[in-house]
Amino acid sequence: MTQISRFLSRRLRQTFGSVSALVYLALCAALFVWAIVVSVGDDSGESMAIIFPLLATAPTSLVLLVLPGGLAMVTVVVVLAALVNAAIIGWCARVLRRGGRPDPAS
């Protein structure tokens, strides 16, 4: 393993390695898959199921909604918002676990 790949894997594990961040990502993925399945199965075209993954990834997804519409853009918005929110959750978990001690990663 090169030094760069070790750094990236350590940084990813540090960012998304907390249980709460992983549970959040799994929940967002399950909601998104559910919304796609429900929307595809609806013949009337009136399904509003995609609202649930957008609300689960709020507030980040609401900022990104200014982008043009379409399923591809909604997918990008939900994935990016879930990753940003999971990174924030991981950071908060790391800070709370650390307590008053300084961060050894910085």
Rank of each mutant, 00 (worst) to 15 (best):
L54Q: 00
Y24I: 08
V84Q: 13
F52Y: 08
V63N: 04
D43L: 12
C92F: 10
V74C: 05
F32V: 00
A29C: 02
N85F: 02
S9W: 10
M48S: 09
S47V: 06
D42E: 15
L62Y: 13
I89G: 00
S106H: 14
Q14F: 12
W34N: 03
G90L: 02
R101N: 12
A81K: 09
A29P: 00
T57N: 07
L12K: 12
L83W: 01
E46Y: 13
S18V: 07
V37R: 10
A29S: 05
C28A: 14
F52T: 05
F32W: 00
W91M: 06
F32H: 03
Q3L: 15
G17A: 06
A21M: 11
P68M: 03
G45D: 12
A72H: 05
I89F: 04
N85V: 04
L12R: 14
A87C: 03
L67Y: 10
L31W: 02
A87N: 04
A86T: 06
V63Y: 09
A56D: 08
G70R: 11
L65W: 06
A81P: 00
S106K: 13
A87T: 08
L71W: 13
G70S: 06
T2E: 11
L62Q: 14
V63A: 12
S47R: 02
P68S: 07
P68K: 03
R10G: 12
D42F: 10
P102G: 00
S9P: 00
P102K: 13
L67A: 14
V38M: 01
A82E: 00
R97A: 00
G17E: 01
L96F: 11
L22I: 14
V95Q: 02
T2N: 15
V79Q: 01
L27A: 13
V84T: 12
T75G: 06
A21Q: 02
R94I: 05
D42C: 08
E46T: 15
V76N: 06
A49Q: 07
S44E: 15
L96H: 10
E46Q: 14
P68V: 07
G70H: 09
F7G: 05
L62R: 09
V79M: 06
F16C: 12
G41V: 02
N85L: 08
W34S: 03
S5T: 15
F7A: 09
S47E: 03
L83E: 00
T2C: 13
G45T: 08
R98C: 05
F16L: 14
F7R: 07
V63D: 09
G100W: 13
F32C: 01
T15S: 11
I4N: 10
P59L: 11
G45Q: 06
S18I: 05
V33Y: 04
A82T: 00
N85Q: 11
G100A: 14
G69I: 04
V40Q: 14
F7E: 05
A21L: 10
P53F: 01
L67I: 08
I36R: 02
P102N: 01
S18R: 08
P68W: 07
S61T: 02
G17V: 04
D43V: 07
L67V: 06
G90N: 05
S44A: 13
A21K: 03
D103L: 13
A93P: 03
R10D: 14
S5D: 15
L64E: 09
G41W: 01
R101Y: 10
T60L: 14
M48L: 13
V78E: 03
G70Y: 06
P59F: 08
P104V: 00
S9D: 11
R11L: 15
Y24N: 00
V78F: 05
S39W: 05
I89T: 01
V66F: 15
P59W: 11
